[in-house]
Simulated assay, not measured.
Amino acid sequence: MTARMMKTEGTGEKADLLSSLAQAREFLSYTCRELSEEDARKRSTVSELTLGGLIKHVTAVERNWTDFIVNGPDSAAAKTDYTQMTEADFARYADGFRLLEDETLAGVLADYRAAAEETTKAVEELADLSLAHELPETPWGDGGSWSARRTLIHIISETTQHAGHADIIRESLDGQKTMG
C-alpha cells in the first residue's frame, strides 16, 4: 500500500477544499498499491495513459497550478509561450505522461507527496481565496482570470478525473479496484 497523503485538519473553506483534494490524492495514489514497476509503465487501455505516468502528470499539474496561485503572472505557466513550442518541447511534454528509464513508481509517488505538502502549505498561507490572476494564454483556454479558490477547485477536478482513469487502468491490469 502507498504511504498516505497528507491529511488536513481544521474547519472553514480552506480546510474543506484541502480535505477534498487530500481525498482525491489518496484515491489516485491508492490505485498504485502493490504495483510492480512493469505494471506502473504498462498501457492497459487504448490510451497512452499508464499508472506511473498519471501520477507524474498530476504532480506536474498540481505544481503548475499551485505556482499560479502563488505567483500569478510570474508563474512558469504564465510565462510559457505555447505558440513557440518546438517538436522537442512537445516531446518533453509527452514525457510527463510516462515513467522514463531512470524513474520509479516509488520515486514519482514520493514526489507527488512532496507536491501535496507544497500545495497544502501554499493554500494555508493564503490570506484570501478570492485573490485572482489573469490566466496565461494557451491553445486550449479562453483567457480571463481565476481566483485561488477556482484554481484549487481545478486541481481537485483534475486529480479526481485522473483518479478515475487510474482506477480503470488498474482494473484492466489485474482486476484490483480503488473502490467497490
Rank of each mutant, 00 (worst) to 15 (best):
V70R: 14
G53S: 04
Q84T: 14
E101S: 08
A40L: 06
A148K: 10
G72M: 10
L105N: 00
K42E: 12
S145W: 06
G53I: 08
Y30K: 10
A106Y: 02
L54M: 07
R41D: 02
W65H: 11
G107W: 00
Y82A: 11
W146E: 08
R33H: 12
E171M: 10
T138W: 02
T160M: 09
Q84I: 07
F68S: 12
D81R: 12
W65G: 09
S157D: 14
E171P: 04
T31D: 02
E87F: 07
S157T: 11
I155L: 12
L126D: 06
A127M: 05
T8I: 13
L173N: 01
V108E: 00
I169P: 00
L135K: 12
A91M: 10
E124P: 03
A60M: 09
R113L: 14
S75Q: 09
T31K: 01
N71V: 01
T120C: 14
I168M: 07
V58D: 01
I69K: 10
H133P: 01
E38Y: 01
E26W: 03
M5D: 04
V123C: 11
W140T: 14
E26A: 10
W146D: 05
W146L: 10
Y112P: 02
I169S: 01
S36T: 15
A24F: 03
E103N: 00
I153Y: 08
A78H: 10
E171C: 11
P136L: 06
R4W: 08
S172Y: 06
G107K: 00
L35C: 05
A110L: 11
M6Q: 12
E125D: 15
E37V: 03
T138S: 13
T119Y: 06
M179Q: 11
Y112N: 14
E134W: 04
G143P: 07
T45V: 13
T11M: 08
R41E: 04
L99N: 03
C32K: 02
L100E: 02
S44N: 09
D39H: 09
T178N: 10
G12H: 06
L173S: 03
K14E: 06
T119A: 15
G10Y: 04
H165I: 06
V46R: 12
D111Y: 03
E125K: 13
L129H: 09
E171Q: 12
P136K: 03
L28D: 00
M85D: 07
E125N: 15
E34L: 05
K14T: 10
A77V: 14
R149V: 05
E137A: 13
L51R: 00
R98W: 01
W140D: 13
